[in-house]
């Protein structure tokens, strides 16, 4: 269930874009969400509690490095930026096996109930599963729902240079013109092959009658911070969340900043990403 942080605050959910990172290869979607939440100084507006979510808590992952106050953060929370009309669901632990479908069902019903303007599902997929022709060029791929395609036309391919995820029909698929009316109902999700992308595909299937964009990146497990920065840059190119000239609250205090097209503020929770330095006493 969704529990709002402030009971009396109301939101015009229909005006917001919802970003849903999935737990996927290298956690790239979640790292991208971290960057966006951190740089935009988004407010936490609610909590998602569901039996499928592994419990996890910690101190505020977006606090300043020297902050000593305690602000409890739980595993799955909703953040909001009124200035950019974006909401983000940030999830910090995997879903419990056997309950993924019930979570996707609840999430899709909640998204539908709130009637978001559009939904962007952000994730990654195994780069070792690429076919030869996918190995060249951009590692980014998109899948659009029909309403999104109708709304945006060729914008993503012409202006952003994003490629549609190449379909990968399996041997058991019916031919496209089988006349069963599937092309009228929605996109052919059976032909979409997104290994390692978590709930991206089932969620897309559940809400494909809304404007949905699935944004994927081919990657492998490793140091995925740069992948997340790249993905965030791409999204920013379309959504214009952060511009260089904009005055951002806390920009003078920011220490960890990734230089590039946009100054992304690296959250303090990214400290010791791959563990701390080894213990010297091991070699005494």
């Amino acid at each position: 269930m969704y529990i709002p942080a402030a009971k009396d605050k109301k939101y015009q959910w229909e005006e917001y874009t919802l970003l849903v990172p999935t737990v996927s290869v290298g956690n790239v979607g979640q790292l991208t969400a971290d960057l966006i939440i951190s740089t935009l100084w988004m407010d936490r507006i609610g909590y998602i509690m569901h039996e499928a979510i592994t419990p996890a808590i910690g101190n505020n992952p977006f606090a300043h490095a020297d902050a000593t106050a305690c602000k409890l953060t739980s595993c799955c929370e909703v953040y909001e930026s009124a200035a950019t009309q974006v909401m983000v669901i940030q999830q910090r632990a995997p879903l419990i096996k056997g309950r993924v479908h019930s979570y996707v069902k609840w999430l899709s019903e909640w998204i539908r109930e709130k009637k978001f303007r559009q939904v962007v599902i952000v994730g990654s997929t195994f780069s070792h599963e690429r076919l030869d022709y996918q190995m060249e060029g951009s590692p980014y791929r998109i899948v659009q729902s029909k309403p999104m395609k109708e709304r945006m036309g060729d914008f993503f391919s012409e202006m952003m240079g994003w490629k549609d995820l190449e379909p990968r029909p399996s041997l058991i698929d019916m031919p496209a013109d089988s006349g069963d009316g599937q092309s009228n109902k929605g996109i052919n999700t059976r032909a979409l092959y997104m290994p390692g992308s978590g709930i991206a595909k089932p969620l897309l299937e559940a809400i494909q009658d809304m404007p949905v964009l699935v944004f994927l990146m081919f990657c492998s497990e490793g140091d995925n911070a740069q992948d997340a920065i790249g993905l965030a840059q791409q999204l920013n190119g379309w959504m214009n969340l952060i511009s260089k000239k904009e005055e951002r609250r806390g920009s003078e205090l920011s220490t960890d900043v990734a230089r590039g097209i946009v100054d992304w503020k690296i959250p303090t929770s990214w400290k010791h990403f791959y563990g701390t330095h080894f213990d010297q006493t091991l070699f005494h």
Binding site: I3, Y47, M49, T54, P55, A56, I57, G58, N59, N60, P61, A63, T68, A69, C70, L72, S74, C75, R92, A93, T268, S269, W270, K271, H272, F273
Partner: peptide, 28 residues
Amino acid sequence: GTPLCPVLEQPNLVTGLAAQVMTYCQAN
């Protein structure tokens, strides 16, 4: 108030039953 000991620093997480109790309390 504040806990009578240092606050848990980033990037540490607590999982399991203790995390679920605290999540419930925070959300409610």
